[in-house]
Every structure is written in structure tokens, then in C-alpha cells.
């Protein structure tokens, strides 16, 4: 499983072709014959697909900033585990949080309309004498809290629903 590289609206698969002490890159199934040699801090000579050019590179977390051919591009390196989770989130869409076990709601810490972030505790349930905090798993707004304080629920019942919030308009 290799990371995916997102650049300019495309997603490219970059696979290392190992050869003893060195390696080549295969991008989207085609060998790239790529190599990178440092010239000065931040400055490199890039060989790729038969061409040679000067590039500038900087990195922050999972984003690599590349300056080449007169423009700056941002390459996002998507970790496969993160991508798998993103795809699941996109698939599940509805933002529903299901009860992992039967129990009772003992505390409600959010209200409908609240803006929440992943990890914010929405409510606390009690099951088999143990209390569990139920956190929001996505960023958004609390759209529903179907089980009231003190009410009981079964395993798999919806405890909360979070809707992704629309992008905020930026100030002038």
C-alpha cells in the first residue's frame, strides 16, 4: 500500500521500483526515471520522464510545496490509512453515531445546532455500570439528539447525528 499524491486536482499513484541500492519511481503505471539532487538549500535538480529541471521544495506535514516550470504546486501526500478512513466517512455520509451497546443516557453535553469538532463529547451513556463518553466523529453541527436524558436505547440505535457545516464566508 503506497501513499497517494494529490496535485492539481489529480491523484497519482507513486510506487517505488526497488533496485538494490537505488530505486526508480513508477507514476500511474509508467516508469518516471526520476532522481532528485540537491543544489542549494531548498533548491534541487529534478530528473523526470527524460527531462531535467531546477525545482524548489519545501514541506509541511503531509504537504510538499513544489516550485517548477515557473509555478508553485502543492502536493498532498495522502496516507493510506487516513484515505481509507476518509473514504469511509464519505461513504457513510449521514454522520450518525450509533450506540455501541444498550444503555441509558446519563448526561447530554451538546444541543441541536451546536458546532462541534471531532472529539467533542456529545453525551455520556451508562451501560453495565460503566459510563462512556460519546464523542463527535466529524466536524459539523449537531443536527439531532434522538435519545433524551434518562432514556434507554438498544445497541445500534442512533444517539446523535452531525451534519457537516458549510464553508464559512471569509471576512473582507
Amino acid at each position: 500500500m503506497e501513499p497517494l499524491f494529490e496535485v492539481g486536482g489529480r491523484t497519482l499513484r507513486v510506487v517505488p521500483i526497488l533496485r538494490g541500492s537505488g530505486f526508480d519511481l513508477e507514476i500511474d503505471g509508467r516508469p518516471a526515471e526520476a532522481a532528485l539532487a540537491p543544489l542549494a538549500p531548498g533548491e534541487f535538480e529534478l530528473r523526470c520522464d527524460g527531462g531535467v529541471e531546477r525545482v524548489f521544495l519545501a514541506q509541511e506535514g503531509d504537504r510538499v510545496f513544489v516550485h517548477l516550470r515557473g509555478r508553485a504546486l502543492e502536493v498532498t501526500v495522502v496516507d493510506p490509512l487516513e484515505r481509507a478512513r476518509q473514504q469511509t466517512r464519505a461513504r457513510l455520509g449521514a454522520g450518525e453515531i450509533f450506540a455501541p451497546m444498550p444503555g441509558v443516557v446519563v448526561e447530554v453535553l451538546a444541543a441541536i445546532g451546536d458546532a462541534v469538532r471531532p472529539g467533542d463529547t456529545l453525551l455520556v451513556i451508562e451501560s453495565m455500570k460503566l459510563q462512556t463518553a460519546i464523542p463527535a466523529e466529524r466536524e459539523g453541527r449537531v443536527a439531532a439528539l434522538p435519545v433524551a436524558l434518562g432514556a434507554s436505547f438498544r445497541r445500534g440505535d442512533v444517539l446523535a447525528r452531525i451534519e457537516s457545516a458549510p464553508a464559512e464566508a471569509l471576512p473582507a
Binding site: 492539481g8 523526470c48 521544495l57 514541506q59 516550470r69
Partner: peptide, 22 residues
């Protein structure tokens, strides 16, 4: 203009060869 595939490949190659974890 949209980003050409050749440029995207070069950028991805540079990024891969620069990216620590990779």
C-alpha cells in the same frame, strides 16, 4: 489552463523524492 499531466507527474516525482516518510 488546467495543470498538464506531465507537470503533475514531475511535481509528484519531486514530492515523493523529497518526502521523508516515503
Amino acid at each position: 489552463p488546467g495543470e498538464e499531466e506531465a507537470t503533475a507527474r514531475a511535481a509528484a516525482a519531486a514530492a515523493a523524492l523529497f518526502h521523508g516518510p516515503f
